[in-house]
Simulated scan of single mutants.
Amino acid sequence: MTDDDTLFVVTHMALIDVDPGAWSLQIGGMVGNPCAISLDRILALPQHDVVSVHECAGSPLTPKEARRRVGNVIWSGPRLSDVLDLCGVQAGSSYVWSEGLEWGEFAGIRDEPFVKDLPLEKALAPEVLLAVAMNGKPLGAERGGPVRLVVPGWYGTNSVKWVGKITLSDTRAPGPYTTRFYNDLTPAGPRPVWAIAPESVMVSPADNGLVPAGQRPDIEGWAWADAGVTRVEISVDGARKWAAAELEARRDFGWQRFTLSWTPAAGEHRLSCRCFDAQGAGQPAASARNEVHSIVVRAV
């Protein structure tokens, strides 16, 4: 697990400090009974824990750049589906819009609320929470507290911090954070940056580090994907040949540890790792947020 002091902090506009006593969640749109849900009511609902990778999708201004801001944490809170049940989802609704309370300017856009959307099917999935705690501690302001949306398996941009409003609709949200930003161009047209694509990183040995020649140091790292990772491969010769690594099972939506032992000869070595998910998708070699991770080490 990644502790609070280590996990990255990213925001589009500014960090805000919300008074828990004054906070409420406004739920409207295609619901039978528009509601204002207090924090006390959120805390009174059944609480659930979900282990999940939390990964930033990177800057929407440079979507093909691999940033690899990522951690693995335990979120706690009621299921979004339980909260929506309090207001009654109307037939015909197909998207859930979530609006954060942050305000300011991003990429030249001023005074535009941060609004994201989820297909209703994903929003009602049991892993999607209105989180009130991370790693067993109440959410602070920098983590989007007192309540934030958490969408395990999807990039962090969809887990709206300081959530203050939820709207049920039969269309996608029209704001810039669902139309102008966070859409990848594909041959079939724009694709929302929703589910986390397969990705893996090596954490040991360190990039530009030293390893003992003629011995068997382990190459270790983490792999993750929305669909779960089924295979990790490692190359120790500049991506010419690949060997299967040992891969641990996934817990909830968390990352998975992988290891491979090798016996390096003296000299410089370029190591690379790649993974594949349960749907057969893998990591591209370059020019993508989840491109193959490579490091250089020297055996002495």
Rank of each mutant, 00 (worst) to 15 (best):
A123D: 03
D207M: 08
D237Q: 14
P119R: 04
A125D: 08
G164Y: 10
A141T: 09
G88D: 01
A266Q: 09
P205Y: 04
Y177E: 02
L118K: 12
P60S: 00
P192R: 10
N135E: 13
E112V: 03
L120Y: 09
G88Y: 01
A66D: 05
V31L: 00
G214Y: 03
Y95S: 09
K165P: 06
R298S: 13
V163M: 07
S98E: 04
V50N: 07
I109T: 05
S38L: 06
R41E: 11
K122R: 13
L80N: 04
N158R: 12
H293N: 10
K64F: 14
S24F: 12
A123R: 02
A266K: 14
D49N: 12
L80F: 10
T179Y: 01
W103F: 11
E291V: 07
D237Y: 05
H54N: 06
I27S: 03
K161S: 02
K64A: 11
T2G: 07
V50S: 04
P174H: 15
G29F: 13
E233I: 01
A66G: 06
F258H: 00
D184S: 08
K64P: 05
N158K: 15
T259W: 05
T11Y: 15
L25M: 03
A195W: 07
A286Y: 13
E102T: 05
G221Q: 02
Q279R: 04
I16L: 12
D19Q: 09
